[in-house]
Design a protein around this nucleic acid. Structure first.
Lengths: 249, 249
DNA sequence: TTTATTTGTATGTCTGAACATTTGCACACC
DNA sequence: GGTGTGCAAATGTTCAGACATACAAATAAA
């Protein structure tokens, strides 16, 4: 079993500024993806893992606590720890990409700007993506609106495992690309919506006055196994956009 | 400060079968509701709490870790720990009244103003209510927030068939009144969210500067038979409110 | 007056150890 | 065969303490 371990650097750097428990956490996130642990067999026991990595058992638990709380691990006293089975109910409420939303309403929009670049993952994104801070990830920037001017500025960040190069044809609907070309199915979206004043840079992009209200919509998109796919943040001109949703109890 | 502690049994039972960290967790959930901690001031520091309860600091942290993860506490290195107070979650399959949302987060809010009046239904409301324009309907106005000031201004309009008199005790949760006393079950909520600049009147009510961003949330609430119950519009101070929602596909 | 520097404080990290609790299994007993 | 006892294994709980790090306010230097 420990054969696989050195195939992927399962090591802890005691000199790294990153906390040990955080390194362990990332390490275990990788282990979780490995086939030998993803099929229901138990992870190495805490004591062994501690000894092998050269750190204390408490530190191991600090990491596994978080993963358990996230629902990635299942622990059973007296037995062991294993990867949680990914049971996801696929409900048919529907959420959309921007392209779909527009075309359903019969609206024709314009891409004022499309741009990709590789950037270092900032904390919020790294945390959602479950990757180390500073990892290079692809960022897609789009400025979209109607013929008379832009009304939303988007930034999308994609998880490295998807394998986007940045050279794709992003005039196609985004989720078409991800589903058809990369066989990854977006299935869960956690959204946060808030209002704020337009910063100087945002105002300039959207061609509005500084301090005018903007609707900020963040989306955390995951696949059916709860693996992160995309982080998306959009800045909408307030007067041109209303977020609408139906909720059943 | 420690005066308040013995007013509500803030004690730990070392003989209880319940784990200490679990007892501490429950205890802190209660503390979070107390006005003296809910107004932004810091909780007792870990070392003191540990000494006072007669347990180790590690056990305190075991409890606060969980609460922090749930978003109830905010910890700042070198400064202290206090109650988090600005993210409100609305889950898709489970929507709530304001009172419920707050109490679930362990937040204590204040009604700065409660007022009812009978007004003529304006077009938008009349249309949703399916009543003639100008019909007299009950309007409930509430200004709510935390101890340090209001953060949302609500107007609720109720369909005449419900039979509200305006003399009900509106300090109770609104949907309790409607369900229990009037046997009408809110079941569908169509929501619209947008941002705008605070008008003079809104700014005055919320005690913010004119033109500052405000999140406007309209809700059209109906019963299971799709009959209109309530139209509700809330103006939230942007920086104190984030609308959050999970969507499954 | 402004800018560094120091210092106190509170949380963050990590360790090693002891004991408790739950579970599964082997073994003995009827 | 069925049943119970006891042991070993694994996670769960708790402790005391040491040191690291970030923040804020006070202090000293420019």
């Amino acid at each position: 079993m420990s054969e696989h371990l050195h195939t992927m650097e399962l090591i802890i750097d005691h000199n790294s500024p990153l906390p040990l428990h955080y390194q362990v956490e990332n390490l275990m996130r990788k282990m979780i993806e490995l086939p030998e642990y993803n099929n229901g067999s138990f992870l190495p026991k805490e004591v062994d893992l501690a000894k092998q990595l050269g750190i204390s058992r408490n530190t191991i638990r600090q990491a596994t606590n978080k993963l358990e709380y996230e629902g990635l691990l299942i622990r059973k006293k007296g037995v062991g720890t294993k990867v949680a089975r990914n049971i996801v109910t696929t409900k048919l409420d529907n959420w959309h990409s921007f392209t779909q939303e527009m075309s359903e309403k019969g609206l024709v929009f314009v891409n004022f700007m499309i741009e990709t670049k590789w950037v270092k993952a900032e904390p919020k994104i790294a945390s959602f993506m479950q990757i180390p801070e500073g990892t290079l990830i692809l960022c897609l920037i789009r400025l979209r609106g109607f013929a008379d001017g832009p009304f939303v500025y988007f930034e999308s960040y994609f998880h490295p495992r998807i394998g986007l190069s940045g050279k794709e044809d992003f005039s196609r609907p985004l989720y078409d690309i991800i589903e058809q070309d990369y066989h990854i199915v977006p299935s869960l979206s956690s959204e946060r919506i808030r209002a704020k004043s337009a910063s100087v840079i945002t105002a300039k992009r959207l061609r509005i006055g500084r301090g005018e209200p903007v609707l900020v919509r963040e989306r955390f998109v995951s696949d059916p196994g709860n693996r992160p796919i995309e982080y998306n943040i959009g800045f909408y001109i307030a007067e041109k956009f209303t977020y609408s949703i139906d909720i059943k109890r």
